[in-house]
Design a protein around this nucleic acid. Structure first.
Length: 347
DNA sequence: TGGCAATACTG
DNA sequence: CAGTAT
DNA sequence: GCCA
């Protein structure tokens, strides 16, 4: 669409495709700032005083106000290379490098890719093509909740006191997403270890598991400036594609005769130790741009290192653990607080 | 003019 | 290590 | 591309 932030995102994506990371980030931040505004821009003067909006982004926004579109953006949108890379990178497992490689070989469509026997796809890309129709469609909130019921049911069998939280875009209030993210925790320390393998096994047994990539991620504290805690923390996650039966989705009729009664959905599950829940929640709530800016702010402005597990103070060489005594803060207030200094937590 | 989030897995 | 994922 |  023709909103200024969409236009800036197009330019950001184009710079990503030509592997020009700087301008890409510049346009991404600018787009995020516009989305963080309480009300849409009325005219070009409204950008006065906003961060991350310099001469280049201003010109684009001005063009949109004056002409209804920006010629630079329109040019990108009609560019064959941009259009092709956009299609290629829309496949799960295909990034800018692979897309570029295919483009250079003269390939222009997904049909050409799948029918080219000299192309060797990895496991992720095979799943990406196999379920492309489904997983490239947006996931509705109702679908996300239906997936939630399935996972919660299974996880509850493993451990009745499991808690499950919908994160990602849906936690930020979005009505649609490209995947569904859940955080799972059990109060008993160490008990979370077997959780995801058990969930994955059960999904497989029920015939609902279409793709699974399980990751045992180890958080190595000894790598930090502080070598006093030699502890290793871990933190499991998995990237899945699951079969969601349409009858499980509230307010949706299984359409008979023509076609399947299910849809493939991308699902990410994360199982941190209860003690790490706050950091995991922060890290998995997004948006991508918000997470980047938060980490950059931690490091550059506060001399701290933030990741999905912890916040480390480089000045005192201590981990900041106060925040694990969680307070319930509405997302909206988190966002506005943070976006006062950072760019926004919107997509 | 340098720097742009940070980390884990696959092949 | 390069590439993709989050 | 924007900023420190």
């Amino acid at each position: 669409m023709g909103t200024p932030s969409d236009a800036l995102e197009v330019l950001a994506e184009n710079y990503e495709f030509i592997e020009s990371i700087g301008p890409c980030l510049g346009f991404r931040r600018a787009a995020s700032v516009l989305k963080s505004l309480p009300a849409p821009l009325r005219n070009i003067n409204d950008i006065e005083g906003l961060p991350c909006l310099g001469p280049e982004t201003k010109a684009v926004i001005q063009d949109i106000f004056e002409c209804g579109s920006s010629s630079k953006v329109e040019e990108v949108l009609t560019d064959e290379r941009y259009r092709t890379l956009k299609i290629f990178t829309s496949v799960f497992g295909v990034g800018p490098k692979t897309a570029e490689k295919w483009y250079r070989r003269g390939l222009r469509s997904l049909e050409q890719i799948v029918s080219d026997s000299s192309i060797h796809l990895n496991k992720m890309q095979i799943a990406g093509f196999q379920y492309y129709e489904d997983i490239s469609k947006p996931v509705s909130k109702a679908e996300a909740e239906a997936v939630g019921h399935i996972i919660k049911e299974i996880a509850g069998c493993f451990s009745p006191d499991v808690t499950m939280t919908l994160t990602g875009g849906f936690r930020r209030g979005k009505e649609f997403g490209h995947d569904v993210d859940f955080l799972l925790t059990v109060p008993r320390p160490g008990k979370e270890d077997g959780l995801l393998p058990a969930v994955i096994d059960q999904l497989r047994i029920q015939g609902l598991l279409l793709y699974s990539d399980f990751q045992e991620s180890t958080f190595d504290l000894s790598r930090l400036p502080n070598r006093r805690f030699e502890a290793m923390d871990h933190f499991q996650k998995c990237f899945l594609i699951v079969k969601l039966k349409k009858e499980q989705v509230v307010g949706q009729q299984a359409e008979q005769r023509c076609g399947r009664d299910w849809k493939a959905v991308r699902v990410d599950l994360v199982a941190p130790p209860a003690e790490r829940y706050a950091f995991a929640l922060l890290g998995w709530s997004g948006s991508t741009q918000f997470e980047r800016d938060l980490r950059r702010y931690s490091r550059l402005e506060r001399n701290m290192l933030l990741d999905n597990h912890a916040l480390f103070d480089k000045t005192t060489c201590f981990f900041c653990n106060k925040v694990i005594h969680q307070r319930r803060i509405p997302m909206a207030r988190c966002d506005s607080t943070a976006s006062a200094m950072l760019t926004a937590n919107q997509d």
